[in-house]
Design a protein around this nucleic acid. Structure first.
Length: 464
RNA sequence: GGCGGCAUGGCCAAGUGGUAAGGCGAGGGACUGCAAAUCCCUUAUUCCCCGGUUCGAAUCCGGGUGCCGCCUCCA
């Protein structure tokens, strides 16, 4: 079965065929690094990374660029509030993003291009757009002329004439049409500026993505990602300027991810309802956050709350159960077990791939993982340990395609001495059939956040 | 107002023509000294409402209702 991907531009799913056989280029609009990364940034990165992982699993070689827009009004504003250079604001937030992406097992992109490192490429593009009659310089700025491109609005299904209503020209802007957008913004006194053929200034918002995508991935890229809130105007403008420049399609698949909601409405600074990822990571195991985000389809909105995450934690523990019971933390894959479990493995693997082939449906794929987990538990309960271990390794491999199961559980050696002492005493109490003492020790351990489970193989400690 | 999307059991969430995945929660049972974990069973005759197409619709069409996003910086 072939991989099918939903494309915003054509508003339909279709079979994925890359420009170059065997190779895939992906560009994702990443952070404008004016603040610390929030949950939405992680979701968007994760959605793109999910595609990347699956494409690689299918055997494609993927070249993936995740950009940082490291200069804009708010970065400048923030730097001036803090009396530091814009670079220090950008650097700090980029570092934070990289740290938390890593913490959530988001594979590093092939390249992390930054806007300010591509000023020359942007200048070249702007010059070309002016040559071709799609852009004009005015008062130190350069604008893209929206009306010069007949298909402007095709991504977001908007028509220029309808958009004009209510649109206003900012003071100081000298545009031919209110919808024209800045490719280059002339510097105001005291602002960071780069030299250009049109005078000192800095890039407008959208041009950096076109310039960087083309430089690192080529003039037509396979997959372009980002949050759904970027469809208009950002992605719309990217298409317009890129295609006006090259005359070629800019991206074959537009894959925008759904947004993160908080108590029913979109997370945003103006409403004051948003989660920095560092605050979440302090409370929730990143592996659980990752699992939670993957358990909803990437294009659907997702509600983010501590309750949801706690629920996900219980579910995820269940999924990891067979791995812990068999200690199958290495040697993912391996031979398939026989018998009923073998059938369950084959079924789960088939359904998992069918789900992922259908526009990266990780939510459905995860569901099939639960079925496999149950089959392994059943085999284990029936004493088929080696079969179950083989099954667990297959489960580990499937989860690995989604970037799950990357952390083995804490071993006994990692427990504090205090915990180990209590545990040891409890083993002794149980040997003496002193249930009263045994239960008291279990309560004491619970108070330390340690869950005790008794089984045929003796007592097991778990963090709760 | 324009554009896009969504409405599935107590909650979360898959499912685009063939008779409702999965998770959480809840109830019952097995196992256990008791628990926990695990397994088994039960928990939507029904998918916002009304029409229509079809042998057959949660899935397609028409009309409602409600919610969300974009149209201004936002992943």
């Amino acid at each position: 079965m072939a991989l099918r991907i939903y494309d915003t531009l054509t508003q339909a799913k279709r079979e994925f065929v890359p420009v170059t056989p065997g190779q895939v280029t992906m560009y994702v609009c990443g952070m404008t690094v004016q603040n610390k990364p929030h949950v939405g940034h992680i979701r968007s990165s994760l959605s793109a990374e999910l595609m990347r992982r699956y494409l690689e699993h299918l055997g494609f070689s993927v070249r993936y660029a995740y950009n940082f827009t490291d200069i804009d009004d708010k970065i400048i504003e923030r730097a001036s509030q803090e009396s530091v250079g814009w670079e220090s604001v950008s650097e700090r937030n980029i570092a934070a993003y990289r740290q938390f992406a890593d913490l959530h097992n988001i594979k590093q992109a092939t390249v992390y291009p930054r806007a300010t490192e591509h000023i020359a490429e942007m200048h070249a593009m702007i010059a070309r757009l002016i040559d071709r009659g799609h852009a004009y310089a005015a008062g130190g700025d350069v604008y893209f002329e929206v009306r010069s491109k007949a298909d402007y609005g095709k991504l977001s299904n908007r028509r220029v004439d309808e958009l004009r209503e209510g649109y206003r020209i900012e003071p100081g802007e000298i545009k031919k049409d209110p919808l024209d957008f800045a490719l280059w913004k002339g510097a105001k006194p005291g602002e960071p500026a780069w030299e250009s053929p049109w005078g000192p200034g800095r890039p407008g918002w959208h041009i950096e993505c076109s310039a960087m995508a083309m430089k690192h991935l080529g003039e037509t890229i396979d997959i372009h990602g980002g949050g759904q809130d970027l469809i208009f105007p950002h992605h719309e403008n990217e298409i317009a300027q890129s295609e006006a420049c090259t005359g070629k399609p800019f991206a074959n698949f537009w894959c925008e991810n759904g947004l993160v909601n908080l108590s029913g409405s979109k997370m945003s600074k103006s409403v004051g309802n948003f989660f920095f990822i560092e605050d979440i990571a302090a409370k929730v195991d990143p592996e659980i956050t990752r699992f939670y985000l993957l358990s909803t389809h990437y294009r659907s909105p997702i509600e983010f709350s501590l309750e949801r995450l706690e629920e996900a934690g219980v579910a995820y523990a269940r999924l990891r159960g067979p791995l812990e019971r068999t200690q199958a933390w290495t040697a993912a894959d391996g031979p398939a077990p026989g018998g009923a479990l073998g059938e369950a493995v084959a079924t789960a693997e088939r359904l998992f791939h069918e789900a992922m082939d259908d526009d990266f449906n990780s939510a459905a794929a995860v569901g099939h993982l639960f079925d496999l987990a149950r089959a392994i538990n059943r085999a284990l309960d029936e004493g088929g340990t080696s079969e179950a271990t083989q099954g667990a390794r297959r489960l580990l491999a499937l989860g690995g395609i989604l970037g799950l199961f990357w952390k083995a559980p804490a071993t006994d050696a990692a427990w504090p001495a205090e915990v180990l002492a209590l545990a040891e005493e409890r083993v002794a109490a149980r040997a003496a059939r002193d249930w009263k003492r045994s239960d008291a020790l279990r309560d004491q351990l619970a108070a330390l956040g340690v869950l005790v489970e008794d089984s045929g193989q003796g007592q097991k400690l778990k963090r709760r």
